[in-house]
Design a protein around this nucleic acid. Structure first.
Lengths: 239, 239, 239, 239
DNA sequence: AATGAATGAGCATTCATTCAT
DNA sequence: CATGAATGAATGCTCATTCAT
């Protein structure tokens, strides 16, 4: 216990330093991007010397990787926290869209811009890590969509990959728009609209069309029936 | 006139230099990205000295901006060249989607990766220029969609901005996927599928639904009519 | 007495720490050289924190100096342990050459490379210490050679310093060759050959010449004697 | 011609810069060793900015390699300039020893210390280059010694490698002694003495010994002869 | 007009050393 | 006494940009 009491504050302070550095690094990377951020900036933001950064992290790249993975852990947790597990595909989609927009628009951390930029940029290892995180982050929705395809509520004639591109591409574009124009959209409205749009896209068109056609046939048959029945009376013509 | 004759060759040579530099810069920026490209690389690729680059362009950033705007001019022209001007919104959408994918996937110029990356990256002025170019480039489709909304073939209950995010976001995602995985998708198939998905999304759901409802009302009315007409005989009613 | 009993374990533990550190430092300095070794490496090798190194030694340089002087003490002791004290100069030379090669080639400690490199390198104080150690280490042979000069078995017409350069220069070169080419020579053979070479060099040329001359004189005398004795007989012709 | 007149000064100035930098680097490397020298020092010594160093040389290591190889070229040239080509092995040895000492002791460049130190130090490529240069530099004497062995004027019962170690080891030791003690020895005297020492070492002992034995045999024979001649007294004692 | 030459301002990273606990 | 933590001072190297010719 006495040993614990001696070491715990140290460990606590060390952990604190790590957290401070990560927080500072998140701010700096968010604001300046990977290339634009310097270890000097990060050190200053954390209130330590530049050398201290290297005491806790192997280098700039490793620090940024940690920042990104941490952030993805957070938003993944947020995403999965209150997902209704046994809900319909539509409900899951709606939840994911809303949570995604809420998370990324709400925090002004700029991490969104970071991963959008650096996920496509120079440092290959960083890009790979971001890609991995993204894949894990998007996995739940992918599973839901795949399940939806087997159930028949999601059109099976489209590659899953394309559906993902549609969903996340649209959301990324919305987010990037919000970031670059600095206009925060109404999150609720946008989420609902986006969900609706996407749902319209991924829902089997054939279902409604065939239903219509079946109905039309029945109608035609009924009308013929009616006409035959009321041969003497005047028949109304639809459209 | 004699003055013109003396200066014209000079201007021609200068124009040639500018073109060489722009071509070289496009190659280098495409391959290495904005940050990764160096003025030395560009000068070497153009076969001139590094200082000459600065004779014709104010700096690296301006050169890149010129490269990007030129490229957008080209692809915009390509896009608009054979667009069927008086065609339906659906046809226009299909054309834009196909042309976009063809242009950006076909040329291995890497300009696509450049604008996708740097459009979201550090250099603010460059990002702004890219955003402007993108806006102009996407304008034709935007107009078509707006027109579609007034005509009623595109659902009017969605902001135009959101429709654009859906269309271009999906396409960007497809492109980035192709770039990062180095897998070239079947352009024709992908274009058709994407068009279909997007069309499903942006087409008025209400149109079909209301048609259905209108039809149902007519049917109901017809059935009532028929019932009334064949008062004595028992008529079968479908569902 | 009780005070002694309280402090003695402490001193013992401290001495133990010092020994551990010196051993660790020897390993690290041997393997990486002075510049290549870091205090962090040494601390880790000793199983203590980096700061502890500075508790016992003023700094990296002092630690290395201690390592070197300790090592020289050891090999000096080894050298002098079984030197035949009353032997001839030739026997002493042979012993020194053999012992030197055995010691420095046998132990893979790399201390040899360390003193060969750093004895000539940047850190001036370290170089001075190494020079001092070397001087002490080479003193026995120097004394033997000086004695040999007075006795007449070592040529007196050469400065002692030059003889030393010959002896140790040759050995260092042999050692460095072995180190850089990673080929271990046959120690016995090399030692014998080197001894023979050096002995040929430092032995008075005059000795053999005078011996010859003395012999010649004797011969001449004998011949004269013989001639006189066999005055009537035919005299044999020498060559 | 006019083009030549325009470009030549530039090239001349560039060559001049390179020479200045090499001279400055030689000074700095000589004085501080490889590790101790900094690019900043070299730049300052050359009167240029640090960046200019990297305009002309790929880096610190390459610069040092150039310095070393240049220096070896110089001293090799000096060595071979007035070597008597058809002279005896002894004359060649004498020349090499003298030229070596003159060259390395005369110039206070300290390059000697550099190659002695760094030839055994950390940077592996540099060490390799130095080893190569040394091998080339020592080749003439090696050939002479090998030739001497076949001719019989150099003892053939010793490995050539060992003879080289003896010759250059002794000289290096002399030089290092001069460097560290800052005492310039009498070059002529030292060269002669060293030559004499080495010559004594590498000259076939067997020659004098066999001469002695041959003489002894002749003597014995003569004595026997004499004994036989003085037949009246019976005392033939063979040894 | 073209450029060879030069550089100022950084940048990530290292490491021996100090000090409060 | 032992050390975790922190850092000052470098260090080799890069690159967009300037300028005299």
């Amino acid at each position: 216990m006495s040993a614990l009491q001696r070491t715990t504050p140290r460990q606590a302070r060390a952990a604190h330093r790590v957290q401070d550095l990560l927080a500072a690094a998140r701010r700096v990377f968010s604001e300046h991007g990977y290339q634009g951020a310097t270890t000097a900036m990060i050190a200053e933001a954390a209130g330590v010397s530049e050398a201290t950064v290297f005491t806790y992290f192997a280098g700039k790249r490793e620090l940024c990787i940690q920042v990104v993975t941490d952030w993805y852990s957070e938003i993944s947790e947020e995403l999965e926290r209150d997902v209704p597990p046994l809900s319909s595909v539509h409900a899951k989609l709606a939840h994911v869209v809303r949570a995604h927009l809420v998370t990324l628009l709400a925090d002004g951390s700029g991490m969104c811009a970071l991963v959008l930029s650096e996920g496509r940029a120079a440092e290959p290892e960083l890009a790979r890590v971001i890609a991995d995180c993204k894949r894990r982050y998007t996995a739940p929705l992918m599973h839901a969509l795949a399940e939806g395809q087997t159930q028949g509520v999601v059109r099976p004639d489209m590659p899953l990959r394309l559906l993902r591109d549609l969903v996340y591409g649209a959301m990324e574009h919305v987010l990037w728009d919000a970031i670059t124009t600095l206009k925060r959209p109404r999150i609720d409205t946008t989420a609902e609209q986006l969900t609706e749009l996407i749902w319209s896209a991924i829902t089997p068109r054939d279902a409604s069309l065939s239903a219509l056609q079946r109905l039309r046939e029945e109608v035609a048959q009924a009308l013929r029936h009616a006409d035959a029945a009321s041969a003497s009376a005047s028949s109304p013509t639809s459209r």
